[in-house]
Computed example of a mutant assay.
Amino acid sequence: YRWSLLYVFALFICGTLNLAFGIKWNQMIWIDDRNFPGGPNAFVSIMFSDPINVTSNAAYLTGNILADAFVLWRCFIIWNSNILIILFPVLMFLGTFVCGIFVMVQTSQPGANLWTRVTVNFLIPYFSLSIALNIIVTLMIVGYLFSHRRSIEASIGKQHAKQYTSVIAMVTESAALYSVFSIIFIIAYGRNDPAQNLFLPALGQVQCIAPLLILLRVAYGRAYTEATS
């Protein structure tokens, strides 16, 4: 489980940096530079490429890549290491990675922000691919566990199978928590709804929590593995 510890550490670092620098960024917006000409909105638009905010965004994107990669790995394990099954999700993951790099580079430019046309052209595909990836993988994992529910119960007993086939187990195993938050955010962002400002900061933490919940099940021996199948 050495790799698990390294992964948890990396995810923890990403989540912590995203939260810490995000808090500092909000302090700058609403407290330190409250009297910026044009107010907080102008400050965000003009100073979005500030190193504090860039660091927070970089930590978020890195955490997102780690989280998506982990969910892909879980899908691979649950589907009995079938490479063909995850081929399409892997391509989506690569697309997410590339779009994320472009978003990071673009938002680091002076005067750029999340709402400039060039950034939006990459940001919406980035979130759309990431969300679609998580939804597809979530459905694949839940679908497999649900369709093999009877065989799992037959092989290890109905009582013991509950830890793999219960609603809570399937939601946790599939990282559905992150998928739900992502969908809400992308809808709010696409509509330019202020609610996006509520879900975006939480998204950075939820994407770290979802894989950790799965790893917790692995540590307790409750996660679905190749041996289970």
Rank of each mutant, 00 (worst) to 15 (best):
A42W: 06
R217S: 15
L19H: 03
L87M: 15
P51S: 01
Q109H: 14
Q207I: 15
T55G: 02
Q207S: 12
P201R: 08
V218L: 11
T228Y: 00
I135P: 00
F12Y: 05
I131Y: 11
A67R: 04
T96N: 11
T138D: 14
F122C: 09
T138F: 13
G39C: 06
G15D: 03
Y164T: 06
E226R: 15
K158M: 09
I85N: 00
L94V: 15
I101F: 13
I135G: 01
D68G: 11
L145H: 05
S4M: 15
G39M: 04
L6I: 04
I131H: 06
N18Q: 11
Y1C: 02
F102P: 00
S81A: 15
M47W: 03
F97T: 15
F185E: 03
T138P: 04
P37E: 05
I141K: 03
F12L: 09
I13S: 11
L213V: 04
S56P: 00
D33S: 11
L5H: 09
L200N: 14
Q196H: 07
E153K: 14
L216E: 10
L177Y: 12
S174T: 07
F181V: 11
R117D: 13
D193I: 07
G95Y: 04
Q196W: 05
F36H: 10
R74Y: 03
V171G: 01
L66H: 06
E173N: 10
G204A: 08
F185A: 13
W3C: 00
R150V: 09
L177F: 14
A67M: 12
N26R: 09
A175W: 01
S182Y: 03
V71F: 14
V120I: 15
L213S: 05
D33W: 13
S108H: 02
Y7W: 03
A169H: 01
I214H: 10
C208F: 01
E173W: 06
N18C: 13
G190Q: 08
N57V: 12
G100W: 07
L203R: 07
R2D: 08
M28S: 07
C99S: 13
S4L: 12
N41D: 14
W30I: 02
S182R: 02
N197G: 14
I83M: 15
R149T: 11
V90M: 10
I13G: 00
L11Q: 11
K158T: 13
A154L: 09
N113V: 00
R34V: 09
T107S: 08
F12S: 10
